[in-house]
Design a protein around this nucleic acid. Structure first.
Lengths: 300, 300
DNA sequence: TGGGGAGCCTTAATTTTCCTGACCCTAAGT
DNA sequence: ACTTAGGGTCAGGAAAATTAAGGCTCCCCA
């Protein structure tokens, strides 16, 4: 019956957030990625929280962690509270920078789909600042400071375009190709995150050709650039190569095209109120086709 | 139209909490006290948040800070979110230590009112752990990890006893007192936080005596101890001296008693569900009178 | 009117805390 | 047996809090 046990300290906020993320995502590594810290930090935070509570929140197994009953019953309220906090934070940020729109997207989409559209968008809304952040994985929009998210997804909600794939190459190379079988004589460029694009496409042919190996890129935009330079044949994603097809730097030598179940998807966590900059940008991107490229400069 | 502005970082959680507290309480110093940090830390947090938002949240004036419009409009949602978070952590803490009750109270109440009751309470509920934290100021129960709060307050909700004040002294000294006028010949002990108790009491007399100065204590329990030792006359608070009156170490030499508008108040932020340890402790404290002190040990 | 004195916030330097980065460990799936 | 995937551990360095000092008003009172 001590009169002064060490004052019951408030549970540390960051440790609570680390626990909530780890519990919701089912692992420390995933939580570390969402919070942008290292797994070691999550370990320390959870341990700190468990020490403060004097209770286990996770059962440690050699291949991961599993929530204890205590952790399970506490998770929903914590998640709701952090969601509310994130929503309030989002409102605060929007109120502080009312004319800025933050977009999260894949690096490839940023360079090959979004970037060509930006000049026209900027002209259409000169007072809106567009901030683009390239991420490998779609963020948790409930928690991240982005207004719009633009990724490939199976979800049809907010789909802008289907993902259609087909081989593309430089015009000079295309001139040497007669049929899909000719692919065997050229390098097949592909992207690491879409490793089986070539297989998917060729499997739809009546007579699938032998596919030679080719360089695998971790940046799709780089693969596109190499293809423009004649390095080989790339398995193209329509949305990402349309600009190069339009201005003639790339051509599609074969008619065969494959529509994948996923598509380019633009969405936001909360409904965008009409009149807000984010709403304008979303509507504009959704409904404005890519403008024609500037005519090649033929004057000296 | 930069493609990679420094990635919009998440607003730091602790900075948000510092801002919320400062905004809600109307000052950095008050926020620092509620959060248990120094004012300098609040300054740094708010500055960090303002830098992250690239907007002012407070107008600095020489005698304090005032919320900007941006700060004002963002405050309610933030406060609600942190309240939800505090409620969730409270539930988590309760689930982790289901048989512990945390009580916040004044040091004087802890020593003079609560402590004498603890043995009987412990006997009545041996499986409940009582944790008592002595604070000079009632905590914000919505945010603090206490189940029960026990302070003097004007609020009648949850009142346990009125605050009745009257002079008390050691029996030997009392024997020399005939009327209130005799007070003038003895030191008048008082507590710094209740500095005008003497004036309040004496002003109700038909013939107010001249009040001599006396030692002012910052710990009321110490003043009581000194009075027991015959150091002078103390202005007693009924709830805090009842134990000493009951066992005869102090007596009340005069009949005149003054009931102040405030009273001893026991309350909790959220309604206590029946069957919970906190509910049991609250009911017990509310309804169980102070047990008789053990008989003086007269055997050799 | 003008000079303590008290509040309140800020700043600078020191101390403490936290995060990272590289390594180890264990178990499950080749 | 080797690889992979997930956590745990530890030393060093970055970022935070504390402490202590400083500036700026207002208030009070002579």
């Amino acid at each position: 019956m001590p009169v002064a046990p060490p004052r019951p300290k408030d549970l540390p906020l960051t440790a609570l957030r680390a626990f909530e993320a780890a519990a919701r995502l089912g692992g420390f590594a995933a939580a570390a990625q969402e919070l942008g810290v290292t797994p070691g930090a999550i370990t320390a935070h959870v341990k700190q929280l468990e020490a403060a509570l004097d209770a286990r929140l996770f059962d440690r197994t050699p291949r991961g962690v599993r929530l204890t009953a205590l952790g399970q019953q506490s998770l929903p309220a914590l998640t709701a509270a952090f969601d509310a906090l994130a929503a309030a934070t989002g409102d605060l940020r929007a109120a502080a920078a009312p004319r800025t729109v933050h977009i999260a997207t894949l690096p490839a989409i940023a360079q090959l789909w979004l970037s060509p559209r930006l000049p026209a968008l900027r002209a259409a809304a000169p007072d809106i600042r567009i901030s683009i952040t390239a991420l490998e994985t779609p963020p948790n929009l409930k928690r991240s400071p982005y207004d719009l998210s633009l990724f490939f997804s199976d979800d049809r909600q907010g789909r802008i375009a289907p993902d259609v794939i087909f081989p593309v190459c430089a015009p000079a190379l295309a001139a040497t190709l007669r049929s899909p079988a000719d692919i065997a004589h050229h390098p097949c460029l592909s992207d690491a995150t879409w490793a089986d694009d070539w297989a998917l496409w060729s499997s739809t042919l009546a007579d699938p050709p032998l596919l030679p190996d080719g360089p695998v890129f971790s940046l799709y935009a780089l693969a596109v650039e190499e293809t423009v330079n004649g390095a080989g044949i790339l398995i193209g994603h329509q949305a990402l190569v349309e600009r190069h097809l339009a201005d003639g730097r790339l051509v599609a030598p074969f008619a065969q095209r494959v529509t994948l179940p996923r598509g380019l998807r633009l969405w936001s966590e909360r409904p965008l109120r009409p009149g807000t900059p984010a709403r304008f940008v979303a509507d504009w991107l959704r409904h404005t086709p890519l403008a024609s490229p500037p005519a090649p400069d033929t004057t000296p």
